[in-house]
């Protein structure tokens, strides 16, 4: 994908590329984004106009569809990020590392969405903004860990050391998240007001539910691809800068000789 290889910095001729090298296909990415936006709008229209309101909870129950969708998205993104980190730690690879970073950030955005839509729903259905209910607690703690990984990576910069550090933490986060899950289950288990399933009672609701899950996952994929592309472009800029300064050095040496 990269048209400039590190070896070119050491004297090999650059590939003659007149057009700016593209990382991934811009058209495919726009297509994916357009598709997921259309899917989201369609499912949203279905949820608003076709799906009946829940008999017990009323209109607020419609938060549920996309709330669960973003929760799925968060889970998948963060698990994927952890896997990418593990792979990169064992055999370093730029694309895998960039994918891991992109997934971490998209997972974090999803976590924020879950953590705001959750309390809004809970306010109506449980009568309180927040309870230390297992799933809420788990989401909060896991998103804090993901936030730590992201901040660490940003602060440690693009050094090889910083990459290893952040990826180690991301690897550690996976089994820890499982332990946190067990712990908060035991801890918050005394609160019986967990609403199971959100009360899917009609086939319209089922369509809305799976449709919104699919829409959010498609959106997550597109966003991750978008972020992946910026990360790869940043890497490309670094290589180009390296190449430029190498040339300057060579020219200076030639002039001095």
């Amino acid at each position: 994908m990269l048209t400039v290889s590190p070896s070119s910095a050491t004297g090999a001729p650059l590939p003659s590329s007149a057009a700016p090298p593209a990382v991934g296909s811009v058209r495919n990415l726009n297509l994916a984004l357009g598709f997921s936006t259309a899917l989201v709008v369609g499912v949203l229209a279905w949820v608003m106009f076709v799906t009946p309101a829940d008999t017990n909870l009323g209109i607020v129950q419609k938060i549920f569809y996309f709330h669960v969708g973003t929760a799925f998205g968060m889970l998948l993104c963060l698990v994927g990020a952890s896997a990418c980190a593990a792979i990169d730690l064992m055999s370093p690879s730029e694309p895998i590392d960039a994918a891991g970073r992109a997934l971490t950030e998209v997972g974090l955005v999803c976590a924020l969405a879950v953590l705001t839509s959750g309390p809004l729903w809970a306010r109506k259905s449980w009568g309180t903004w927040w309870t230390w209910e297992p799933r809420l607690t788990l989401t909060l703690l896991v998103s804090l860990v993901a936030l730590a990984v992201m901040i660490l990576r940003d602060i440690a910069g693009d050094s090889a050391q910083g990459r290893k550090i952040a990826n180690s933490l991301a690897v550690l986060a996976a089994p820890m998240a499982y332990l946190i899950h067990i712990a908060v289950q035991k801890w918050g288990g005394t609160h019986p007001q967990v609403l199971q399933g959100g009360g899917i009672s009609s086939s319209d609701m089922r369509i809305a539910f799976w449709g919104s899950v699919a829409a959010v996952l498609a959106m997550c994929f597109s966003l991750a691809a978008l972020r992946y592309r910026t990360l790869r472009s940043e890497g490309q800029i670094q290589l180009l800068r390296l190449e430029l300064s190498a040339r300057e050095l060579r020219r200076n040496r030639k002039e001095a000789a």
Partner: peptide, 10 residues
């Protein structure tokens, strides 16, 4: 603390 405390929660 940011790294350690959430992981130490259990």
């Amino acid at each position: 603390p940011l790294v350690l405390y959430p992981l130490l929660a259990p």
